[in-house]
Amino acid sequence: MGIIRRTWIRLAGAWAWRRPNGPVRLMAAFSQAERGSSYDVIAALERTERRDLRRTYLFHALDESRHARIFRRRVQALGRQDRAEAALVDAGSLRATGIIGEAPLFEQMGELEFLAFVYVVESLALEQFQVYCDHGMPDPDTIAALRAIADDEKFHISYSRRELEKYRAAGRGAEVRAALFRVRARRIWQAWLRLSRRLGDAVSTLWLWALYLVCVAPFRPLARVEGGGWRTRDADPRPIAEFARAQA
């Protein structure tokens, strides 16, 4: 598994770093992901029943928000690109990319599965950063940033592993296995959703273009854009109750 995964990370990484504007886009995406994680971990801190874990979650959240700032600075250092900067402040994109769900992850998952999630995701991130650095894909400054961040990820992996071990020791090994499975399955499902959504968007763009050319064109001569300035407007003739119910 390890070798296949590392090869995959290497291939995908080679593409991601080399595509036009690749480093900036990656840094922007990482920054968003870290910010989203920070929110999720704070939400976990607020909701957890395990009061002994609250302080750990706090430090985890602080790490994530610091990482978000580091990546953000890399974006600014690597290039002042319209789109990358816009992506950082784009309100909808966190949710659109599935980084933030409708409810905080902790609410969707519960304690055990959340810890399993932290363990799986942080391990993958660590591995990803290591492959990038080992193969010298980023520039030296970014490598330094990634290595510094990797040290924090090790802390996140170790605490989540320790907690999962505690569950196992308490005889809940089956639950831990199930949670790890669900986390991994969900990641695959979400990757599938992202891929198919992207594919779907591309295909639908084509046929909507066709629709535009065929169905919209004939009406063009009839449509005109109004001029500016004030127009007097009368009250709606409908009774107020009817007006209030209408969507138009």
Binding site: D201, S204, L208, W209, Y212, L213, V216, R220, A223, V225
Partner: peptide, 20 residues
Amino acid sequence: LHHTVAAFPRGIRGFPRTMR
């Protein structure tokens, strides 16, 4: 919709996203 029609053919870029 009215402005989509009025903007033909320039509006083609935005049309798919808006309609989705």
